[in-house]
Computed example of a mutant assay.
Amino acid sequence: MAATVSLSFSLDPQHHYLSHNAHFKPHQTFPLTTSFPIPPKHPFLLPHRYNRYASKSSSSSSHSTPSTDTSLSYSEDPFRTGRFLSNEELEKLKLLENFRYGQELESGSLSVRVMRAEEMDDIVALLADSFAESMCWPSGYLSLLRFLVKQYLIERRALIPHTATLIGFYREKKENGALEEEEEEEEDEEQLAGTVEVCFDIRGANASPPTPTAPKNSPYISNMTVKNSLRRRGIGWHLLRASEELSSQMSSSREVYLHCRMIDVAPFNMYTKAGYNIVKTDSILILLMLQRRKHLMFKKLPARRIPSDISDSDEE
């Protein structure tokens, strides 16, 4: 039987609501909860080599580019799962491969896409360091924590396309008088900004879900993390929006869920502003298990627009 360790992440990139925890340095994260199991050995294949931070994204408002081409050759698939996929899964895998979300921010631009295999170690470090700092774990436990997080991500990756880990890249704006040479170096200045995980259906649901338990057939958002140096730039907000947009494409369910700890007021306000409402709250008895009480929050996603609806944009 697989051993599990329950992990909770809590911080918010847009607010200084943890002033009493000023020792948080490397990263900051949102209060979305999960469990990191140690799974049995299973096949996992890495893709071919490529630039780990290569991402093509628009710097305009949010958008995505789904594809209906299901002729995926194994050598061209950057999201190899190590198992055979049905035609429907291949279509969704291609959609994940082509998904892009882009947004212009006041200080720069953000692009979001699905994590690739070679970027896993960076995400492991981001999640493990964030959790260790937020929970004041001794540095001696960091290597163990990274091992658990990596095993968890490997297990989750094997469930693609029923779940996906999104990563955001931030590029700071150049001054108007920047030289052309500086513009040529712009690609090198793109940096990993944050990550978030989304599961889309029951096959991608976590084996050890946090309480209160969300419906397994609906999309569920968890493990949102933003670098501490990039706080208060709207990155967390747009990681949430990107998760919702991808969920609306990958799932027929219009309901999306997430958890928020009761003590995390600022994130709760952000989720409320984004349209989330409390469904259920942990019993006080959860404190006996040395866990923080959490809200299960829910949002009804709007129906996807079809081309015939675009003519109604005058009302908007």
Rank of each mutant, 00 (worst) to 15 (best):
R80S: 08
T213Q: 06
P267T: 05
C136R: 15
R171I: 05
L90K: 07
V124W: 00
H20Y: 12
G82S: 04
R52V: 14
L93R: 00
T165Q: 03
L11K: 11
P138W: 06
E315R: 12
G140R: 07
Y271S: 02
A266F: 02
N206W: 08
S71H: 13
R171F: 05
E255L: 11
T4L: 13
A178L: 04
M297K: 03
K280Y: 08
R292H: 14
I154M: 11
P138N: 07
S62N: 11
Q151H: 12
V226M: 03
F99K: 01
A125L: 02
A274C: 07
S19V: 10
N98C: 15
A178Q: 08
F44A: 10
R293L: 07
F9M: 14
T225H: 02
R261S: 09
I286T: 03
V265R: 05
M115T: 05
A303F: 11
N98Y: 12
Y74W: 10
L179P: 01
L18Y: 10
L145M: 09
L288K: 14
A125D: 09
A303V: 14
T29Q: 11
A274I: 00
S218V: 06
F24D: 07
E76S: 15
M297L: 13
K273Y: 06
L166Q: 01
A178P: 03
K173D: 11
D309S: 06
L110Y: 02
S61W: 12
A3Y: 13
F169L: 13
S58C: 10
N217R: 08
S62L: 15
Q249G: 06
K227V: 04
S308A: 08
L258Q: 00
S57Q: 03
V256L: 03
I278V: 15
A54R: 14
L159W: 05
K300N: 14
D201Y: 02
L142K: 05
Q103S: 09
V265H: 09
G108L: 06
L32N: 03
S283Q: 12
E181W: 04
E172P: 01
L290P: 07
G102N: 04
P210A: 07
P13N: 12
F84A: 13
M289V: 08
Q291Y: 08
Q291F: 07
A266T: 04
L246C: 00
D264M: 08
P161G: 01
R305F: 10
S75A: 15
E184L: 14
R293V: 11
K300S: 14
K174L: 14
L240R: 02
D312I: 08
P209R: 05
E118Q: 11
D314L: 15
E245V: 14
E316N: 12
L246Q: 03
M224N: 01
N217K: 10
M120I: 14
F147M: 11
I235E: 00
L239K: 01
A164F: 00
L45V: 15
F36E: 00
M297Y: 01
S62K: 05
S75E: 15
P37Q: 08
S252C: 11
D282H: 10
L95F: 07
L148K: 06
L148Q: 02
D12A: 12
P40M: 12
R146P: 02
